[in-house]
Amino acid sequence: MNRPFTQHISRTRLAFIHLLIAGVVGGSLYDIVTRQEHWPFSNYPMFARVHHSRVLTWYRLFGVTADDREVPLVEPAYLWPLDQSRLAIGLRTVYQEEGNGPRLHDAVADALRRYERRREEGRHKGPELRGMRLYSVDWDVVPYATNLDHPSSRTLLVDVARSGAH
């Protein structure tokens, strides 16, 4: 077989290199064609679906302070390493799979423990919380998100109280 440039590469090595090429290219093309995701391969579907509705529905955690105020938990330091995207989509998946059951309750309770532990460790300067609530929040999307603090509606999904809170 004529194999330019590679006379100094053994046949075994060359076969291995070709297998690697086939694996990387084949894995990528497979996910593109089948529209699936097999990390680290993916069909990279982010932002591909067109949004028609101007209403944004998002799952958001709110902390409940001692004086019964509700504060949206959007600072990355509050619940790190969970962020606003992973957290909301993870909670939504749990809710859609199992409804308002023990798993969703556990997830929110874990977020509350995480928030308080990180606060006590000085990793953020958020207020002390006596509870945490998960809402499905709707906004009418507007430029510059000027209505961020005034959603059009909210639906309470889970309410978790901190054990030993006062």
Partner: peptide, 24 residues
């Protein structure tokens, strides 16, 4: 997924506004 609608609709405008709501 969306065809030419991804370009000719207001999708990107809406997307750019949605991300201002702390969702990423």
């Amino acid at each position: 997924t969306s065809g030419s609608e991804w370009v000719v609709s207001d999708h990107l405008a809406l997307l750019l506004q949605r991300v201002q709501y702390n969702i990423s």
